[in-house]
């Protein structure tokens, strides 16, 4: 709790993913990395040089990639299936449903460059629907770590978890937020900052923006709670209900469309268990214009100052 937001150095979480996977693979021969010609973008170059036989590159063929992952798991391997999130989740969604989730294949899906990481490349390369698509599926935990520490912890957790999961990673730099010894717990939000007037809930690249927004609010005498909610499914109902009851107002922010993502998941809990004023920040249901991820997050009202303004507006509705 109240982790420092003073860290300013930004880190690409893919490096933590790759380093952790290599560390695990060194001790577990069953770990294989499966990719779709994405060795570079998935940061699997180190894995490839250390474990060349255990890098299964199927070429540009995402449907086959996911199916192959399911088969590798059936044959006793522990596959991490890595690809750009828009193509992994969009192109191969039916494989994720039937071969992975419904078949309960012990496959770790790793969506790289999710959200608007490929901002300038345009909406075909934005992955701002992947929470909605994947969280609709039973038996598939959906996880978006907020920093390199949580990324490493989530990869370690995934390797030990007996079942499928979807790790949603970015390539946009984020500062350290969690303590170095952080252990990932599925479905458990992390209280990063205590507060009583409003709760800011985010994951992935938005958590650090929420922390900065909370500081701005603090300077104005508003006490904002910050929850890092990496797990979108199963959602931490207990933390959400407590936040609603104890702070009376909720703001969510995500690098995702506001339809069906983290904000929707939080809203579902609030509406059923503790209705309070709420604002969902994210991409407002459009194909985003050209610009970097950081530019687009600012553009869509997720600059820390804008988040703080949204929080004040929600507090007024109490």
């Amino acid at each position: 709790m109240n982790a420092p937001v003073t860290a300013t150095k930004l880190h690409d979480c893919r490096d933590a993913f790759a380093a952790t996977l290599e560390k695990l693979a060194a001790n577990d021969d069953s770990i294989v990395a499966v990719c779709n010609d994405s060795v570079g973008s998935s940061k699997l170059g180190g894995f490839k040089s250390r474990f060349p036989d255990r890098l299964v590159n199927v070429g540009i063929a995402e449907q086959n990639m996911v199916g192959v992952g399911a088969g590798l798991a059936n044959g006793g391997r522990l596959p991490f299936v890595c690809g750009a999130s828009p193509f992994l989740t969009g192109r191969a969604l039916e494989q994720i449903k039937a071969d992975i989730a419904y078949s309960n294949a012990n496959v770790k899906l790793v969506g790289i460059s999710s959200g608007m990481a490929y901002g300038e490349l345009g909406p075909t390369h934005h992955s701002i629907e992947d929470f909605a698509w994947t969280r609709a599926l039973p038996n598939l935990p959906v996880i978006a770590p907020c920093d390199r520490i949580e990324t490493a912890a989530a990869v370690e957790w995934a390797a030990g978890y007996d079942g499928p999961c979807f790790l949603r990673l970015s390539r946009v730099g984020v500062p350290d937020l969690l303590p170095a010894d952080h252990k990932f717990e599925l479905g458990k939000a992390n209280l990063l900052r205590e507060g009583s007037d409003v709760t800011l809930i985010a994951n992935g690249t938005l958590t650090h923006r929420m922390m900065k927004a909370a500081e701005i609010l603090g300077s104005q005498g508003i006490s904002a709670r910050v929850l890092n909610m990496a797990t979108v499914r199963p959602i931490d109902e207990e933390a959400i209900v407590a936040a609603a009851r104890e702070t009376g107002a909720i703001v969510t922010a995500e690098e995702h469309t506001i339809f069906g993502g983290l904000g929707s998941a939080v809203a579902e809990v609030i509406v059923e268990h503790a209705p309070v004023p709420m604002k969902r920040l994210g991409v407002p249901g459009i194909f985003a214009p050209t610009g970097s991820a950081e530019f687009l997050l600012d553009e869509f009202g997720m600059r820390p100052a804008s988040i703080a303004e949204a929080a004040l507006a929600v507090i007024k509705r109490k």
Partner: peptide, 23 residues
């Protein structure tokens, strides 16, 4: 493995055969 939607079984079978090659 669960089949039903068509075009799923062969990719999974490729993974099974590849797993045997690895192990």
């Amino acid at each position: 493995t669960n089949t039903g939607p068509l075009g799923h079984g062969l990719p999974v079978a490729v993974g099974m055969a590849k797993a045997a090659k690895l192990s």
